[in-house]
Amino acid sequence: MSRDSVLVSADWAEKNLDTPGVVFVEVDEDTSAYDNGHIPGAVKLDWKKDLQDPVRRDFVNKEQFEALLSGRGIGNDDTVILYGGNNNWFAAYAYWYFKLYGRRDVKLLDGGRKKWELDARTLVKDPVSRPATSYTAGEQDRSIRAYRDEVVAAIGTQNLVDVRSPDEYAGRLLAPAHLPQEQAQRAGHIPTAISVPWSKAANEDGTFKSDDELRELYSAAGLDDGKDTIAYCRIGERSSHTWFALHELLGQARVKNYDGSWTEYGSLVGVPVALGDTPGEA
């Protein structure tokens, strides 16, 4: 897989702000960021309000996703460029979500909002409205989404990658401090999961590290190329960032994101949990 087919640079984005058929979409955890200034022409998605079922813990269904994108003026033939704050965590989550619903032409803006701001590129407050479309989504592609039973079955047999911070992995913390505290009942990690914090896949300006650096990172951490991989974090957003690095940048074929992540696993009755800084036994 070529990097150019899944990532665009800030320079490319700036040159294509007015290109017909290119739609910029900001995805944030804190949507006030968009309201205080966004890339010209960008529409916004709220990762919680727009992408989660309001009642059950699950995603909006295919018809709701179609209605959402149609209403935002995103067509099937458009090239969607996703970006956001928090080092693109929620943009990567939306990217994975778009792929889940069969979207082919979607890319991430490398570095997201942070690089755009640090480069002093233009942000505007103008309201954006695009003419409605009639978007058609695919059925969910379950080959990139892991559920709890397969996660439990993967212990000791597949690659499990825990991308949270070392303190969350070890069980010393339940959530990163600067975010809402969705929490599990128990702290720790899934036994046999290796710890590769998401941040190791990114440069400090929020851009992704090079393919060579990424390969070295995961192989040094003990990721076995011959096995399937499941990435998880706390609510599935940081692990989307790692899913993107493994599946989209490095082209590993069988990588799933476990969106239930620790908030689900750490609340399950009867499953094994490991504490401390090492993976632990199956």
Partner: peptide, 12 residues
């Protein structure tokens, strides 16, 4: 960016 004693990202 807040980095812990090992240099790992903690928050931003």
């Amino acid at each position: 960016r807040l980095l812990d004693a090992t240099g790992e990202f903690t928050a931003e």
